[in-house]
Design a protein around this nucleic acid. Structure first.
Length: 467
RNA sequence: GGCGCCAUCGCCAAGUGGUAAGGCCGGAGCCUGCAAAGCUUCUAUCCCCAGUUCAAAUCUGGGUGGCGCCUCCA
């Protein structure tokens, strides 16, 4: 496996801390609202990564956090007059539902901030003890960025410039303008948690470092985890600060490899909360099949920015359709043996190169095309069919494409009653065709088509699909 | 202002020194009562300029044009 490490900005051969094992930590959502396409992209990318690592025969320990303490959550809870737990439970559940629709597997560990406070306290205490953190008069505890020689080594920023930017916004008591809060004190009776540093709530960056130490890290290793991932926007300040906390409170760096996925834009415009053009997954799912969305969002390399638009989505759907067409053609054939094929090797090879999905998809297209061609010319070809089934099962396993029953896949969006009606009309039409009453059969076909479906006459019978 | 990314066929998109993958759309054909699906076939020299090299889409320099981070954000 070769991974593009976004800190060294080079492709590097992946060498795990412990042979055969991989620890992967990905920054997950803050659960105060529904998940949008950006959350989907990130979750999809790292779902793919963990699948590929597993396909290589590695044992993967994948953690993705749920941020359930945050100012935005508190604000929303106040607005709605409910507890923060009601908010976080509701949106955690929604997140899980949306991710499942996209065929994303649950990570092995999903730590929550509320369940990781002990680890955060330990980290803050270590930082204070080692002189990397200090408390100011109002109770806030800050990380002293000047005390960390490695600070800004992750994002390669220049300190002075950032200071100019931040000076006005920050508290006078802070030693350096870039210092960030580890603990924010609360005195006004607002929602808070008890801690050795007084009542308050943790700074956002802290939880990831603490969770990694608690769930994944081995203090005998040079790095806390093998791979740390997240959206490109998190590189600074979030990941820079995480790295600083871990570096200064423990005896290791936080991650050996960093992976950052590109952004999702909508029709050429940046999608962001401040612009208010977030596209929720649940809304997209009303119009598009979850697996089509999965295929579409995954069809571009993870580091590129992704421009979401309907025309491209339709083209992606047509491409996925071809895989399902072949699956339909092979339907009913049982596969027993799990053998290696040239196709499987090629597909894995492509994905092992920093998740080269475009190359992987072209390999799938070629396989589909070759099998179709052979089936057309050579007729019944049991061995070929069997191998194709094995290959498709592999695509399902490693990429999560082709998971559905192919007949149902092509009929999504048509209700049951209509399905029955269509079935009857097709029978009538076939009666008419039998006696070569083409006038009636064409009339019936038009009637069937009016439901927004297309029909196909094949040697196996007549099939229909939603257009 | 600081740091950084990108620019390949109408559209999406691989390829990072050896002579342009794949998909969508479109044209022609096979098959089919018609159609759909499938199959065959056709369509680019890689934003511009200069340089390095036997050889560059791929390296260097300079343009031009997009974009991101620096503030909550995946």
């Amino acid at each position: 496996m070769v991974i593009f490490d976004s800190v060294t900005k080079t492709k590097r051969e992946f060498i795990p801390l412990k042979e055969g094992e991989v620890s992967l930590y990905v920054c997950g959502p803050t659960v105060y609202d529904d998940a949008h396409l950006g959350h989907a992209k990130s979750a999809l990318v790292f779902d793919l990564l963990s699948r590929v690592l597993k396909a290589e025969g590695r044992h993967v320990k994948y953690a993705r956090n749920i941020t359930d303490i945050d100012d935005k959550i508190i604000k929303k809870a106040k607005e709605l007059g409910v507890t923060i737990k009601e908010i976080t439970d509701r949106f955690t559940e929604a997140y899980h539902r949306d991710m499942a629709e996209l065929g994303i597997k649950r990570p092995d560990i999903e730590p929550k901030a509320t369940e990781s406070l002990d680890a955060m306290f330990t980290m803050i205490q270590n930082l204070v003890n080692k002189g990397h953190a200090y408390q100011i008069s109002n109770g806030d505890v800050y990380f002293d960025t000047k005390s960390d020689e490695g600070y800004l080594s992750i994002s390669h920023r220049v300190q002075d410039e950032d200071e100019k930017q931040n000076r006005v916004l920050n508290s006078d008591e802070k030693k350096n303008s870039a210092d960030f809060a580890l603990w924010k004190s609360v005195n006004d009776g607002d929602i808070s948690f008890d801690s050795p540093f007084g009542a308050g709530r943790p700074g956002w960056h802290l939880e990831c470092s603490a969770m990694i130490e608690k769930h994944l890290a081995d203090s005998t290793c040079k790095y806390a985890v093998d791979i740390h991932g997240g959206g490109a926007d998190l590189l600074f300040p979030h990941h820079e600060n995480e790295a600083a906390q871990t570096r200064c409170s423990t005896n290791h760096e936080i991650a050996a490899y960093w992976m950052h996925n590109g952004f999702v834009n909508i029709d050429g415009e940046k999608m962001s909360k401040s612009l208010g053009n977030s596209f929720f997954i649940k809304d997209a799912l009303k119009v598009y099949d979850g697996e089509v969305l999965r295929f579409y969002l995954l069809s571009t390399h993870y580091r590129s920015n992704f421009n979401f638009n309907e025309e491209d989505l339709i083209a992606a759907k047509k491409r996925l359709d071809k895989l399902y067409r072949l699956k339909k053609r092979l339907f009913g054939l049982e596969v027993h043996a799990d053998m290696d094929t040239a196709f499987k090797t090629k597909l894995l090879d492509a994905l092992q190169d920093d998740l080269n999905i475009s190359l992987a998809l072209s390999i799938i297209d070629e396989m589909v095309s070759t099998v179709n061609e052979t089936l057309d010319t050579a007729g019944k070809h049991k061995e070929l069919k069997r191998e194709a089934m094995i290959d498709m099962a592999y695509i399902e396993e490693i990429l999560g494409f082709g998971m559905k029953n192919p007949f149902e896949y092509f009929q999504t969006g048509i209700d049951k009653a209509t399905k029955e009606l269509i079935k009857e009309l097709i029978e009538k039409r076939n009666e008419a065709k039998k006696v070569k009453d083409f006038e009636s059969s064409d009339r019936l076909r038009d009637e069937i088509l009016s439901f927004g479906v297309s029909i196909m006459d094949t040697p196996q019978g007549t099939f229909w699909e939603k257009v």
